[in-house]
Amino acid sequence: MNFTATVLGTGVAALVLVVKLQAAPEPGASLGAPLLGQGLVTVDPTMVGSVQTSGPKPAAMRLIDLRSGESCKILGSQPKSDTFEPAPLLPDCNSSKLSRVSQWRADNDGTLEMADTHGETVMRFMPGDGVLFESVYPSDALVTIVPARG
């Protein structure tokens, strides 16, 4: 009987402690006051979505098919306008899929679109995380664009 009472008492005490720790703070409790004025940086929410990388634009980019390892080198960092213009694809392209690209354009929303000689979209890219661009169209493509070395 003594053992059972001790176990139940300990269990209830533990339950009360857990509930107290997980409860909302009491009214009037200040959680952030000690940090006020300590050099915190505020973030303008209207600017978060438009952060651009700084530094020089690459002189050339490399399109890499991550499934096959095939790649193509293209001169420039991206097209100059939002209308299709010739894509300066270099002859070292060893991919039949990527070598279909003959035109490209940069849209106002930051996307990069590449098309064949007939203006049919071959691939569409969005700015990437850790890379210049990542493919979003076609859905089965796994192509990334990185700055070209050399």
Rank of each mutant, 00 (worst) to 15 (best):
6 T>C: 10
9 G>S: 11
9 G>C: 07
11 G>F: 11
13 A>D: 03
15 L>G: 15
16 V>N: 00
17 L>W: 13
18 V>M: 07
19 V>H: 03
23 A>R: 06
23 A>H: 06
28 G>R: 09
31 L>S: 08
33 A>H: 09
36 L>S: 12
38 Q>C: 12
39 G>N: 10
40 L>K: 06
40 L>N: 07
46 T>W: 03
47 M>R: 15
48 V>M: 08
48 V>R: 07
49 G>Y: 06
50 S>G: 14
50 S>K: 11
51 V>W: 06
52 Q>T: 15
56 P>T: 13
57 K>C: 06
59 A>F: 07
59 A>R: 10
60 A>Y: 04
62 R>E: 10
64 I>N: 04
66 L>Q: 15
69 G>P: 01
69 G>N: 04
71 S>Q: 09
72 C>Q: 02
73 K>S: 09
74 I>H: 03
75 L>R: 13
77 S>D: 13
79 P>S: 02
80 K>F: 08
80 K>G: 09
82 D>K: 11
86 P>Q: 09
88 P>C: 04
88 P>M: 05
95 S>I: 05
97 K>F: 15
99 S>T: 08
99 S>Q: 08
100 R>I: 04
102 S>G: 06
103 Q>H: 14
107 D>Q: 09
111 T>V: 00
112 L>Y: 01
112 L>P: 05
113 E>G: 01
114 M>V: 10
114 M>S: 01
116 D>F: 05
117 T>N: 09
120 E>I: 14
121 T>R: 13
122 V>H: 01
123 M>A: 11
131 V>P: 05
131 V>F: 03
131 V>A: 08
132 L>K: 03
133 F>N: 03
133 F>K: 04
134 E>V: 15
135 S>Q: 02
135 S>Y: 00
135 S>C: 01
137 Y>G: 02
137 Y>A: 03
141 A>F: 12
142 L>M: 13
143 V>Q: 04
147 P>G: 01
147 P>W: 00
148 A>C: 07
148 A>I: 05
150 G>M: 07
